[in-house]
Write a protein that binds this DNA or RNA. Structure first.
Length: 314
DNA sequence: AATTTGGGCAACCGCTAGACA
DNA sequence: ATGTCTAGCGGTTGCCCAAAT
């Protein structure tokens, strides 16, 4: 169906469309959308856009809400568990981002897609192989994923003996406290504060400051997780156990249990007390953590991988 | 210090499916 | 049966920023 020049596609005439805004959302637009949804609920996006007085398409409003403004959107780095899950689910379903996102509570398909493209595909590129190639998939399955499991288990063990004082280390130090009522089902009572009066909302500001004082504190959410892109450090240099030190494939055999079996229940969503934050060995609440993925991909690692890939091809 | 490059991510685009009149 | 509208999905683009030169 051709949408061009058609009024019905977004409920707007071409005259209306002349006024349509594009590009990054402003604070005012965000507030308008939040408050409108708080009062009227979501859905009927084109009507919503018009009624709310937003010069945006319904599509744009929907996307902004779902990917960014929803109170339950998880922000922060992808955790080890999430990385593992993404790898596992992608190996099953391919680029079914929305489907994959269903298993990562609070993560959006867009975020997962971006993660895949920027992190995973980058590493495939570094290995000079196609992300869809058997070699790369094997590398993921036999090397990265077992190592992730290992790190998760190590972190879990560490968390057993370590009290995580996460709340005290809350990264939210912003003055711009967007305080949502936090529960849309609770009569949608969003409140929006602007304590500093300086809400120039660039993406970077959003990332670091828009994180609402209610929405994303440790007390009320499991959302703020930090994790470097944990293709991370010395992936291949640490043997898992004494009997798998030579062949990476020994780390994991397809016939072994599924990672999902390992870390999730059939109902998914990490319900077994696998707390994302406490899994992280280093300062779990520090959203400013640098991405250590590149540390992971040191020269030795790359040489090792390339060697493995060469062996696979022989 | 100025410029270039590349990564990360928010937003947009095109398309499809389903609901409904 | 057909057309319209909405919602959702996956791919792509473009902006911002930090690192590199």
């Amino acid at each position: 169906m051709d949408e061009k020049g058609r009024r019905c596609s977004n409920g707007l005439s071409s005259e209306d469309e002349m006024d349509l805004r594009r590009g990054p959302w402003t604070v005012d637009e965000d507030l308008t959308l939040i408050n409108y949804i708080a009062t009227h609920g979501e859905g009927r996006w084109n009507t919503l856009a018009l009624s709310a007085g937003l010069k945006r398409t319904g599509k744009s409003c929907r996307l902004r809400w779902l990917n960014y403004l929803r109170p339950d959107v998880r922000r922060g780095n992808i955790t080890l568990q999430e990385q593992l899950l993404i790898l596992e689910l992608h190996s099953r379903w391919g680029n079914r981002w929305s489907k994959i996102a269903q298993y990562l509570p609070g993560r959006t398909d867009n975020e997962i897609k971006n993660y895949w493209r920027t992190r995973v595909q980058k590493h495939a590129k570094q290995l000079k192989c196609d992300v869809n190639s058997k070699q790369f998939k094997d590398t993921m399955r036999y090397l990265w994923m077992p190592r992730l499991v290992e790190r998760i288990q190590a972190a879990a063990a560490a968390s057993d003996t370590t009290t995580v004082v996460a709340a005290a280390a809350s990264p939210v130090t912003n003055n711009n406290a967007y305080t949502y009522g936090n529960n849309l089902n609770n009569n949608n009572n969003f409140e929006v504060h602007n304590d500093s009066g300086k809400m120039g909302l660039t993406p970077s500001v959003m990332k670091n400051e828009f994180v609402g004082s209610q929405s994303y504190t440790p007390e009320n959410s499991s959302t703020v997780a930090s994790s470097s892109d944990s293709f991370g450090t010395d992936y291949y240099s640490v043997p898992v156990s004494s009997n798998n030190t030579t062949n990476p494939a020994n780390y994991y055999q397809p016939s072994q249990i599924s990672y999902l079996d390992c870390i999730t229940s059939p109902s998914g969503l990490f319900p077994q007390g696998l707390d994302f934050q406490s899994m992280e060995p280093n300062n779990p609440w520090n959203m400013q953590n640098g991405d250590s993925s590149d540390n992971f991909w040191n020269v030795e690692t790359m040489l090792f991988l390339e060697q493995q890939l060469m062996n696979d091809n022989m």
